[in-house]
Nucleic acid binder design. Sequence first.
RNA 1: GCGGGUGUAGCUCAGUAGGUUAGAGCGCCAGCUUGUGGUGCUGGAUGUCGCCGGUUCGAAUCCGGUCACUCGCCCCA
Length: 425
Amino acid sequence: MSKLQPARGTRDIYGDEARGMRAVVDTFQRVAGSYGFEELATPIFEFTEVYKRPLGETSDIVSKEMYSFESSARESGDKEAEQLTLRPEFTAGVCRAFISNGMQQHLPCRFMSWGPAFRRERPQKGRYRQFHQINAELLGQDAPEADVDIIAMAWRLLRELGLGDKVVLHLNTLGDKESRAAYRNALVDYFGAHRDQLSEDSLRRLESNPLRILDSKDDADKALVAGAPLMSDCMNEDSKAFFEAVKTGLETIGVPYRHDERLVRGMDYYCHTAFEFITTELGAQGTVLAGGRYDGLVEQLGGPPTPGIGWAGGIERLAMLSGAGTSTLRPVIIMPMGDVAMQKAFEVAETLRAANHTVLTDRSGNLKKRLNRANKSNARFAVIIGDNEVTEGVAALKDLDTGTQNDVKFEQLVTIISSATGETS
RNA sequence: GCGGGUGUAGCUCAGUAGGUUAGAGCGCCAGCUUGUGGUGCUGGAUGUCGCCGGUUCGAAUCCGGUCACUCGCCCCA
C-alpha cells in the first residue's frame, strides 16, 4: 500500500467503474435530449453566496459540508479577495446562470448538466466527498404538467438503465409557501409539546428543520411521528389541486409511485412536489435520484420570479446499481512480423480506424504471445502481416472466434472486416 | 461530527498460547512450441503483513496512536 493516497472521500475512477459511470451519463444525455433538454455547464465553483442563500444558513450543507475558500486578492491580481465555494449541488448554480444570462426571455428553459460536486461528509459506500451527479432543471413552467414531464423523464432514464424494478418512486407534496409554513408551525407545535420524548437529533431538528423529524430513524421519534399532523391537513385548496394534478398525470402515463407523507427535502427552497427514487440495494444510501419544485429560488437569488422544477441523480449510485461497465469493445489487432511489415501496419491501422474500427498494433513478442494478448483484449480479428505478405500484397486475416484464417488483399481488408462486424462507415 | 468492524502479493484470502528465509488460489512472466491463440504440464518473480510508536531477547500476531476502507447514525444524490 503506497503512502500516496487520494484525499479522503475522493478516488481515481477507471476501468469498469469509469465505463459504468459514462454509460449513465450517455444514457442521461440521450434521454434528456429526447425531452428537449439542452446542455448547460456551469462553473465548478461559485461565489459562496450562490449556495448560502438558497440552501439556508442553518442547513448542514452550508454550515459544515461546503468546501469554501477565499481567493488571495494579491496573488490573483483581483482588487479584493473573493469568497468561493466548490459546488455542493447543481440547482443553485443553474439558476444563477439563468439569471446571469438573461434567459427569462426564452422560457421555458430545459437544462441538463453533469459533473462533480463536493460535500465534506463522512465517506461511505455510495457517498463520497467528490461525487458526480446528473442534473435536470426545467424553468418557467408553473403547471403540474411540468412536474409530470420531468418525473417521467427520470423514470424513462431509470428504466433504460435497467433499474425499473430496483427502484421505487416516493412522492409527496410540501404545498405552496403558505401551506408549507402552516405545516411547519403545526409540527413545531406538536413536537414542541413532546420535547421530552424527542431524540437529541430531533431536538436539534426542531430548531433547524422540523420537517426532517418526520424521517427520523430513532424508534422513540417514530412513535411520535405516527401521531404527528399530516401535510395534507395543512394544505390549502390550491396546493391540494396541484398535487392531485401531478398524481393524475403520472397515472395517465403509467409511472408507478407511492405517496409517502414522510418524504421531505433537505434544501430550504423546495415547495409542492418532492420525489425520490429509492432502492433498498445500497444500504443507507438508498436515494438514487431525487428532486422537486422550487418556485421561489430564482427570485431569491435576485432574478425575476420564475417557477422551476428539477432533479439530480447520483452517478456513482446509479452505476453501482445498474452494474453496467463491462467493456464490449472488440478491437482489431495488427501484428506486423518484420521491418517492412512494421511500416505497412501503420497504413492498415489508419485505414481501419477511418472505417470506425478500434485498432491496436502489437509489435512485441512472438506470434503466440501476441495472439494470447489479443484474446485477453477480447479482439475479434488479428491481421498478421509479414514481410513476405507485404510483397504479395496480402495480409493473413484471422478470425479469433472461429480460428479460421485467410489471406486477404490489403484493399479488401476493410470491406471484409466491416461486413463481419456489422460496422458501417 | 458520533458509534461498530476491517487493513497480509496485482486480486480473493489463509496464517495469533509472540519464535528460523510469511503462505494458497487466481492473475502475471518464462519454457515445453525459431511466424499461429484460448486447455495442459514445468519453472519463476512479487510483499517495508496500512503507517508511526511502545512492550519484548524476539511482533503480521500484544498495547497505544494515526491513516484508509467499511456498516450504522447524522446528512444527502
